[in-house]
Simulated assay, not measured.
Amino acid sequence: MTLRLAGIISLLTVGAAPCAEPILLTESFNSPTKSGLAEQLLQHKHVALAKSAGPDGSDAIRVTYVPYPRGSERVVSRFPLGRKVTRATLSFDVCFDRDFDFRKGGKLHGLGPQKPVTGGNPRSPERWSARLMFEDKGHARTYIYDQNPKAKYGIGNKTRGAVFSKGVWHRVDLQVALNTSGNSNGFVLLVIDGKKVASSDHLNLRGKDSQRTLIQTFLFSTFHGGHDPSRSPRDAKEKPVKVHALFDNISVSEGLVTSPRIQKGK
């Protein structure tokens, strides 16, 4: 009897597959799509379907970064998630073209509440956002609008070294955990290619506990950011130039998830 019980316990604890975290959003850009995200993004004038260009040879999307007086033209879109949660992970694949100019940095995607705050707009108890940035020479950083009344723009921490290479597919996970009201116990963790590269801890992301402040919005957000032409992408002769990046396999999962690395050769 003891041996039989031990065998059952062994099957339950060792042989069982781990439970997957609930998926709140998934989009691979292969037809037919069901999420509605692809249709929404492809309406933007700087987003195009890239057939067979994904890391596994499937379809992806291609974003064009067009220089203008404040960096590059904004490519932004907001999309509601399937549920409202306190912890979630945004995951996506990205490949910056070989001629991409990181310049002085720019925005990448993130998560937010019912009404996220970005663009230097005023913070409020029900408004926050958590995104990441690409930085000069392939660095990255967390980029967060929290409840700090003294900060006009986002705060965050930069990676020690370069984490993005041109012409290479990378897997990005942005893990977001909300604080409880009145406490600075939230955090944002950036994982690239399975490695933790930057984090922002002890965050007061939201000013109140409510349905409106839960994680419930995906922020597709990518552009060279800033307030003057020096942030625009440029060529080797320092002339403003259009550059491109590919995105694929966007998902948002409830809980904190670390994706496997993209296999070499894909």
Rank of each mutant, 00 (worst) to 15 (best):
S52I: 01
Y68L: 00
R74Y: 02
R62A: 07
K51F: 06
S28T: 15
S52D: 15
L42Y: 12
R62G: 00
F79Y: 13
F92S: 08
V63G: 02
S91M: 10
V76W: 02
R70K: 12
P55G: 02
G54H: 05
V76Y: 07
G57R: 13
V94E: 02
G57Q: 08
C95N: 14
R87E: 15
L81E: 13
V63A: 08
V76E: 14
G36S: 11
G57L: 04
V66R: 10
K45L: 03
G71Q: 09
G82M: 11
T86N: 13
P55N: 07
S52T: 12
L37T: 07
P32C: 14
T86I: 00
R74C: 01
K84L: 06
S35W: 07
F100Y: 15
I61T: 03
F100S: 04
T86L: 08
S35H: 10
A60N: 03
G71S: 11
A50Y: 09
V76T: 12
S91R: 12
D99N: 15
A60G: 03
Q40C: 05
I61L: 13
K34F: 14
V66C: 02
R87W: 01
A48R: 15
R78Y: 11
S31M: 09
R62F: 07
K45Y: 11
E39A: 14
